[in-house]
Amino acid sequence: MDLITPDFGLFFWMLVTFALVFMILKKFAWKPIVQALQEREENIREGLENAEEAKTELANVKVRSDKIISDAIVERDQLIRQGRELREKITAEARNHAEEEAKKILDSARDLIEEEKAAALSQIKIQIASLSVEIAERILRKKIDDDEVQQELMTSLLDEFKLN
């Protein structure tokens, strides 16, 4: 068989073999392989895109969370300040109120004392009067017999009353 003369038999079998291999592999090998490789490529591409997206999303989230935190700090400060103001206000109010109340109580107490005093005085006066009458009565009962003594007492008593 010559080196450079094509041989029909070999040429024929070559075409048959190649065609068979091509048809079998096309259906059962290249289709799933190419499909799987493309799928994988697509997967990787998608994965990378998703990762990129997630990254920007994460950055956004960070910005947002930073904003939320700073807002919260501002709000907290405000709340604290408000609270302090409120507390001071309440304390001041309470103090004023208490002072007023105390004053009121004191006033009423003073009035009561004054009234009680007046009542007591009048009571005492009545008591004194009745006592004096009684005393007088007793003295009278005891010393009525002795004129001299009686006289003397009468005078002294009368002196005393005069003094009043």
Binding site: G9, W13, V21, I24, L25
Partner: peptide, 26 residues
Amino acid sequence: VFGMFFAAAIMIWIFLTIGSRYKRDP
């Protein structure tokens, strides 16, 4: 021709094996 048949058989065997694996878990 025989050598070519053998190569074709090896080729079909190799790529059908690989192909079925790609199909099973791509």
